[in-house]
Write a protein that binds this DNA or RNA. Structure first.
Ligand SMILES: Nc1ccn([C@H]2C[C@H](O)[C@@H](COP(=O)(O)OP(=O)(O)OP(=O)(O)O)O2)c(=O)n1
Ligand SMILES: [Mg+2]
Ligand SMILES: [Mg+2]
Length: 1225
DNA sequence: ATCCTCCCCTAC
DNA sequence: TAAGGTAGGGGAGGAT
């Protein structure tokens, strides 16, 4: 669209370029000046880290050694500091000549080194190895730049293992040494493509420049660069004449004899371009070109595929932050998955799946201490490094931490610089700078930005340390990215609560507990529910501990959001930053969410936000006013639903520790410029080989091949960013292969064929991706390669796929596999770090006595983490013998009564596409006008440009609010159910129903105590134990965030009598064996019938509820939907409740007071939950019934309720609800 | 209804 | 100058 084009040119000319010279680039400039300045924030933060109190002195090996750590080191300074402490040395914060005996560094810039001629500059290995050997080793071998690089000291094993589960236990840090050498360069920082060879061939082949064709294009050429002069040289031309087989062979041969990559850029002579490729018979005619591609100047062209078609890719991948980001995310996910495998295998020592009873029994046996329940449900933390790249890059530039800093390829002061900012620190953000912004835009906002370069290897090291640390606390981790993960800290928190409890009595824990009955008894426990304060305090303690360790070990600040579901935890992180933590207690969730901008919801990106804005929806508060029906109609079923839920803080997603990979792909859309097909072939070859390589590493093959081609949009002559793709049309094609493959050969041919289908001239290509899906051969998350897996790979100095690094060469040299031969797996050389990791890895959470009943299976593995998200009511449904006396405890804390057997859902929102339906574009004309029309709305646009522009718009920070609503997840994980013996499951259901029924009867007397609160807002949780003290548990234990919380009577009745299929999550249901299913069905039906006939729907039965409990209510499904839908919020239920209301009105001469209150508070809850549409409908039903009744009593009751509701709506949402008008009496 | 294909969108 | 990759969710619409 046009607005996009305009967005592309946002470059304004704000004057003010007070160029701040980029200190970062000179890697040391101004070093002297801050020598005596106190080492900024980060160091401060850790310098008073209390080793003295938390770490034992382990030896005095380093006695007399006073070290100043200079720059980024491996292990990081923070860790060296700990090592020094632990072994008798001293860590100096300043490089004071009088105090410091040794400087430790990994890499010092020459300039700095010169200053230090008198000092002893050591490599960190000196420290590490000395400790390992128990004596101070000779300095000679460990001098920095003395030549020899020491290899990995195998010392990890000797260090004490941290025990994260003893909150106050002394601990020490295992070194985080993650690399073997200090020569690490890009090559091993990530999965540097092993195709580097391709680059070299191209470089070194300097043969017969072939004249290239030069004809006109269909549209004006891009004018990116000023010099349009000469044509390109082409140093690969030999390739251009080969057929495919030859090409591949030649590429292989080339790389064999390949030497180091010559940094010398192109020593090739320019050659006039003309003539067409002779190798491709099919479209020489159309492949004319030139015009469009030519205009790139020599210099620009060398940066593109034109300059070096075969070598472009590997060079590009070494510098693409997004490539690293993706690679690392995958890496870290694999790691977590394998971890789980390993620990699962270790834990379930070959036993058959345990029954609930066994699990329970084990948890009791274990330590004898049951863990206290946490009313809000699972405690989830979202941990995210602060301005990750910047923080890591500033490890060696600590003097910059208070300055506005960005990580960026460029350091230009040009306000038109299109270089993208990967990360900016908080001082920069204060000026409005954002991640993803162009540097030029940022400079307009902030005139003293310092740019620092990417340091990918450092980022990876930090990532590894981060994950090592996390994993030492819990195995219940969902890796999100290199700097971010969700962790389940429920059990850690529970333990913290217990331990803080037992510490209260000053004296021996055991004895004190003995005498003090208010304290949790060591054995039975769980019969007490910790207070909200206690929980919050424990959460704070646990999370600061984790954050502290991460910060200390990485040297980078980290923040965490904590809540009882993933959404809120993530939202809380934003609030926590920078360098903080924020716990969103259950009752704060709704209110908090309502203050958020929709654009801040995860899953709501630029496109969705814009569509919402067009509907005048910009905040969650506004969003929450829209009915689910409307949202679903507008955005689709899932997205509508998620929006609906997220707006009010509801999120039923389970933390997902493992996700089977569905696809592998390779794509480049920057610097893609061709003149003719032969060049395309070279490029496709490199992509194909890279894809093959990756799949070989993953040991997968794929059956469905897709390509994604970006083609310059006709008429577009400017690009958003230098050598970028600009505004494009994009096209996808796919083939279903006969047999799964990973062969580069096959990939190459299929890709070329699909490209040929599209019939665009190569000169119009701006980006190309190849993806394989329908994968097979995936390493089953079970056995296989336990050693060469991700754990090893993760911590090995070199990734298996990565090339051996030739010290100074910027390009990794690769042992390239022939196209057919799969990349060999690396031998089971377990890297030292892998071992360290394995040892450091802490006791599995599940093995360590989860809370009673908190036993769950996550995913497909045999892991048994806590199950605190299980609704207490469900817990009560456990078979008697399993409960071991817990029932009373749980029942006590339950106000709840409703259970939702929710499915595991869903994930993030995504954007639909309501306008302009895509038509298939198969018989594409050469330059498809129609085609582009349909895509005009979307693909035609430079979305990234738009997003970047959007990023420039700042948004106001959210502020907290207070409420008393209590969300509390209640779900019965289908995965758990699936893994439990069917008989047990059946038992659970039957028990549950019986229980609910019991409760229903028992509660009939209490509920009346639930008065309608005058202020109509929050916390009226009429259900169950209204007796709960003022606040806290009453509500907390009750219905979930996600569900509205209807009056007990309704809820209970509904729950109790729901027919099985409605009551059970479809997923769960499906997981049950057919026979069991039928059995359950029958039994449930019988029970229900029995109940009904025994208790005819007479008004007397449910004294507390609607006296005339209409039959309809008894049949209400708790939730028809498998997910987080609150009861009554789908049409079905609303309708049925409406019918119930009608029945009630019809059958009662005058409204009973209690009933009125029940109904009223039910409505109130709809208000609280923002289920206003449901409310409107129900009030409609109600009004209709009352009107027909023609009774002043009823009309009065109706008006009373409505007035009350209107007040409530107004108070709570500052809005009037339509449809709540009164009746004329 | 449910699947499959071809997209788009989002996140880091 | 600059390095806009990559995996998964999910919607629309057609095939079954
Ligand atoms: N558009 C983006 C967004 C992120 N990143 C990289 C750099 C970031 O440092 C890293 C982590 O992303 P985050 O979203 O976590 O952002 P930061 O860590 O930089 O900042 P913070 O988490 O403090 O908001 O990913 C990037 O290259 N480009
Ligand atoms: Mg971050
Ligand atoms: Mg992040």
């Amino acid at each position: 669209m046009d607005d996009r084009s305009s967005l592309e040119q946002t470059a304004k000319t704000v004057t003010r370029a007070h160029p701040e010279h980029a200190a970062g680039w000179s890697a040391g400039g101004g070093w002297g000046e801050y020598m005596r300045i106190k080492k900024a924030k980060l160091d401060q933060q850790f310098e008073d880290g209390d080793e003295s109190s938390s770490m034992p002195r382990l030896s005095s090996v380093l006695a007399g050694v006073r070290v100043y750590v200079d720059g980024y080191t491996t292990p990081p300074a923070a860790e060296l500091k700990h090592l020094l402490w632990a072994h008798g040395g001293t860590y100096e914060h300043y490089n004071s000549k009088s105090r410091v005996t040794h400087i430790v560094a990994c890499n010092l810039p020459d300039t700095k080194l010169k200053q230090l001629t008198n000092e002893k500059v050591m490599r960190p290995e000196w420290i590490v190895d000395s400790i390992a050997q128990g004596r101070l080793l000779p300095e000679d071998k460990y001098r920095l730049y003395s030549g020899r690089v020491a290899t990995q000291p195998a010392l990890m094993q000797m260090l004490p293992i941290a025990n994260k589960h003893a909150p106050h236990a002394a601990r020490s840090f295992a070194t985080t040494t993650t690399t073997t050498t200090t020569t690490a360069l890009m090559g091993r920082a990530g999965q540097a493509p092993s195709l580097a060879a391709d680059a070299q061939e191209a470089q070194s082949m300097n043969v017969n420049p072939l004249p290239l064709d030069q004809s006109a294009t269909t549209s004006p050429p891009e004018t990116v660069d000023s010099d349009q002069d000469s044509a390109e040289e082409f140093d690969n031309d030999e390739f251009l004449l080969m057929d495919d087989a030859e090409l591949l062979r030649a590429l292989d041969q080339q790389q064999e004899g390949e030497g180091a990559f010559a940094e010398s850029e192109h020593s090739i002579a320019p050659a006039p371009a003309s003539s067409s490729s002779s190798s491709s018979s099919k479209n020489n005619a159309s492949t004319t070109t030139a015009g469009a591609a030519r205009p790139l100047g020599d210099r620009a062209a060398t940066m593109t595929t034109l300059g070096n078609p075969s070598g472009f890719m590997s060079r590009y991948y070494q510098t693409s932050r997004l490539h690293f980001l993706s690679t690392w995310a995958a890496e870290v996910k694999t790691l977590v998955a394998e971890l789980l495998e390993t620990s699962a295998a270790k834990d379930s020592t070959g036993d058959a799946p345990m029954t609930v009873e066994q699990l329970m029994a084990r948890s009791f046996r274990d330590k004898g201490a049951a863990l206290p329940p946490i009313p809000g449900g699972k405690v989830l933390a979202h941990v995210d490094m602060d301005c990750f790249f910047v923080s890591a890059s500033l490890l060696s530039r600590p003097h910059l931490v208070e300055q506005p800093v960005v990580v960026c390829h460029s350091s230009s002061t040009d306000l038109a610089s299109t270089s993208e900012i990967a990360s900016c620190n908080y001082p920069a953000r204060a000026k409005g700078v954002r991640n993803g912004m162009r540097l030029g835009d940022a400079r307009q906002l902030c005139d003293n930005i310092t740019c620092v370069p990417y340091e990918f290897e450092v980022y990876r090291d930090v990532m590894i340390t981060l994950y090592k640390t996390l994993v030492s606390y819990t195995t219940i981790i969902q890796a999100v990215s290199c700097d971010e993960a969700y962790i389940d800290i429920t059990e850690l928190v529970q333990r913290e609560i217990v331990s803080s409890q037992s510490e209260l009595p000053s004296g021996g824990d055991a004895q004190a507990a003995e005498t003090d009955h208010s304290q949790p008894p060591p054995v039975h426990s769980a019969s007490w529910t910790p207070s909200a304060t206690q929980i919050a305090a424990s959460i704070a303690a646990v999370v600061s501990r984790i954050r502290q360790e991460i910060a200390t070990r990485t040297g980078c600040p980290v923040s965490a959001g904590i809540a009882h579901n993933m959404l809120l935890a993530r939202m809380a992180t934003k609030r926590a930053k920078p360098s903080g933590q924020f716990y969103l207690a259950p009752h704060k969730g709704l209110e908090f969410m309502l203050t958020q901008a929709v654009g801040d919801l995860p899953g709501v990106g630029w496109s969705l936000a814009r569509r919402l804005a067009q509907l005048d929806i910009e905040t969650c508060s506004e969003l929450a006013r829209i009915s689910k029906d409307k949202l679903q109609a507008e955005f689709g079923k899932k997205i509508g639903e998620t929006l609906f839920n997220f707006a009010r803080g509801v999120d039923m997603r389970q933390l997902k520790t493992h996700q089977a990979r569905q696809s592998v792909s390779v794509e480049i859309t920057w610097g893609v410029r061709f003149e003719e097909e032969a060049q395309v072939r070279v490029f496709v070859t490199t992509l194909s080989r890279e894809l093959e390589r990756r799949m070989a590493v993953l040991n997968v093959t794929g059956k469905s091949l897709h390509i994604h081609l970006m083609v310059r949009k006709p008429g577009i002559t400017k690009v958003y960013k230098y050598l970028g793709h600009g505004v494009c049309d994009s096209y996808n094609r796919s083939t279903l292969l006969a047999t799964p493959t990973r062969s580069a050969d096959v990939i190459f041919h299929e890709t070329m064929a699909l490209l040929a289908d599209l019939k665009f001239p190569p000169c119009e290509y701006r980006g190309l991706g190849i993806q394989l899906t329908k994968l097979t051969g995936q390493d089953p998350p079970s056995v296989s390669k336990p050693q060469s897996g991700a754990i090893t790979r993760f911590f090995s100095a070199r990734a298996p796929g990565a090339a051996p690094v030739e010290s100074t060469s910027p390009a990794p040299v690769t042992h390239h596999q022939p196209a057919i031969a799969p990349v060999q797996h690396h031998p089971a050389t377990v890297a030292p770090l892998a071992q360290a990791f394995a040892k450091t890895r802490s006791p599995r959470v599940s093995a360590a006595a989860p809370a009673p009943c908190d036993t769950v299976v996550i995913g497909d593995d045999d892991i048994l983490p806590p199950m605190s998200q299980l609704d207490p009511a469900v817990l009560e449904a456990l078979p008697e013998e399993v409960r071991l006396g817990l029932e009373a405890d749980y029942r006590r804390k339950t106000g709840k009564s409703e259970v939702s057997l929710a499915s595991r859902p869903r994930s993030v929102l995504q954007q639909p596409k309501s306008t302009s339906k895509p038509e298939q574009v198969f018989a594409a004309p050469v330059l498809p006008a129609m085609r582009s029309k349909r895509r005009l709305t979307t693909s035609t646009v430079d979305n990234r440009a738009a997003a970047a522009a959007a990023a420039a718009r700042a948004s106001p920070p959210p502020q907290a609010a207070q409420a008393d609503h209590v969300p509390s997840p209640s779900q019965w994980d289908p995965e758990v159910i699936r893994l439990l013996p069917p008989e047990v499951v059946k038992e659970m259901y039957l028990e549950y129903n019986a229980l609910v029924q019991r409760k229903e009867e028992a509660s009939s007397s209490r509920t009346s105590s639930t008065a309608v609160p005058a202020d109509a807002s929050l916390h009226s949780k009429p259900a169950g134990r209204a007796s709960a003290k003022s606040k806290g548990k009453g509500p907390a234990a009750t219905a979930a965030t996600k569900r509205s919380d209807p009056p007990a009577s309704l809820t209970t009745a509904i729950s109790a009598s729901s027919p099985v299929p409605n009551d059970i999550d479809p997923t769960v249901w499906q997981a049950l064996p057919e026979s069991i299913r039928r059995e359950l069905e029958t039994e449930m039906r019988l029970k229900q019938q029995a109940r009904k006939s025994a208790v005819p729907s007479s008004s007397s039965r449910l004294g507390f509820g609607l006296p005339n409990q209409p039959e309809a209510l008894n049949n209400l499904p708790v939730s028809v939907q498998p997910d987080s839908v609150p009861p009554f919020c789908n049409n079905d239920t609303v309708t049925t409740v409406g019918a119930a209301l009608q029945l009630w009105v019809d059958s009662e001469a005058v409204p009973g007071m209690e009933d009125v209150q029940v109904v009223c508070s039910y409505f109130e809850r709809l208000v609280e939950q923002m289920l206003l549409d449901s409310l409107q409908v129900l009030v409609g039903y109600f009004r209709q019934a009352v009107t027909a009744k023609r009774s002043t009593d009823w009309s009065g009751a109706f008006n009373g309720i409505v007035q009350h509701l209107q007040t409530a709506v107004q108070a709570r949402h500052r809005a009037r609800l339509a449809g709540l008008h009164l009746l004329v009496v």
